[in-house]
Design a protein around this nucleic acid. Structure first.
Lengths: 230, 230
DNA sequence: ATTGTTATTATGTATGCACATAATATAAGT
DNA sequence: ACTTATATTATGTGCATACATAATAACAAT
């Protein structure tokens, strides 16, 4: 009652939801009523409620009021894996070796993904990511040259393709597909595993404003785990 | 100039960041200056800037001002997989079969995870999730009975363990680990795969306020993919 | 030179107010 | 009875203002 910030109010409300005082799917008091109860302005209540709504705990509707989310969708955030950081987070030294770097016409599946015509050339790069000089992941990547033409001048000795792209097109959209496959001969070889070993695969495609930039597959070494919190 | 909402302002600012007008790591004008430029109140600018800061595009500091995030961390949100929804999203009919449901003393590794003593009993449940009566995923789960004692009365014919828990402890925290393993005899059998097939595994532990609730492993059928956007 | 004080700056927060907007309930007109 | 207008309600948004707070700079005191 002494000092009501939107944060304390929000926390208090969150507790009321978590403890079940405000039931799942139930209607909660209106802003004015809450403002009186907490002894603060409606604006402050509004801010707290909006924050909780953003967090997915509340659903708000003009008229009809605010109600606790019926089926709480648990969402987890995870930072898109940047291999270099993954390696360094383990305390290992990161290095990478580019195996292939050519301009060729991609297979149709890739051309479709990058939204370029079948005759267009694209940049194909194969990289092995190393942790303390041991294979950590194998990367197979296609890049749309129309989206980032000046990538051909990039010095991939110093910086990885991924990091160059992040700097060049910092705020892109994308999708990620996680899966597991049995390593074939080639992949097994690149990550120093037995053929047939289960491999964790990340398949990522990124774009910026209708223009597709790159699509890649990352094959991690056996035993790799991707950790997240929610 | 006509109608500046915090949304339009935020969008405009986002563009300035994306196009590089406001360089990565660079300092951007102060709130007052921006308020003048956009012809609106400082409050509105503040709201827009805070939103962008929440989104991770800006970093703000009292004094020192606001600057564009130096190393943009791309974050993806994904909803924690609820198997039932995954199945239904494919247009298949969901069902599940409980294979095991016993109260026993868990192995030490599990007891540690649930933060219970080695002599305490816990609930162990094995479930096969079916899509159109074909195996979709195999679940192996331990539940801390001290956290949710009344779970023993739950009717797991109608509702899955997971959904019961979500309703019972709707707002918990947790961690998720993704990995890939080669299926052993037992798992292979449960998901109708060859032994040794690469299997996508989700390992999840959830807790609420220092109390651990459940830990489980989900072994998905071969070919399963987890899709996310960012 | 080191320490302490004060001023300045930029963001953070709270409030009161006015009006906008969406959804609904009620009353009026035909 | 059916449509249309109007009032009501709850949230959404914008503005002006005031003060809080953190970080720094400038300055003085020892």
């Amino acid at each position: 009652m002494t000092k009501q910030s939107h944060n304390t109010v929000r926390q208090s409300m969150q507790e009321r939801i978590e403890t079940g005082e405000w039931a799942l799917g139930g209607l909660i008091p209106g802003e004015i009523e809450l403002a009186e109860e907490y002894g603060c302005a409606r604006t402050t209540i509004n801010r707290a409620l909006q924050a909780l709504a953003d967090a997915g705990m509340l659903v708000r509707k003009r008229k009809g009021g605010t109600r606790v989310c019926n089926m709480p969708v648990r969402q987890a955030k995870f930072s898109i894996p940047v291999v270099r950081e993954q390696v360094e987070a383990m305390g290992s030294q990161y290095r990478h070796r580019v195996l292939v770097n050519t301009k060729t016409t991609p297979p149709t599946s890739i051309a479709t993904r990058l939204n370029i015509s079948d005759s267009d050339k694209a940049l194909y790069i194969e990289t092995v990511h190393l942790a303390d000089d041991r294979p950590f992941a194998f990367e197979s990547r296609w890049i749309n040259l129309k989206a980032v033409p000046n990538i051909v001048d990039a010095p991939f000795k110093d910086i990885s393709v991924n990091e160059w792209l992040i700097r060049s097109v910092p705020f892109s959209n994308g999708d990620v597909i996680f899966s597991a496959i049995n390593a074939d001969e080639k992949i097994a070889d690149c990550i120093e595993a037995e053929s047939g070993t289960a491999v964790f695969v990340v398949d990522r495609t990124t774009w910026y404003k209708e223009e597709y930039i790159t699509t890649l597959k990352l094959y991690y070494k056996p035993g790799f785990q991707l950790y997240t919190r929610f």
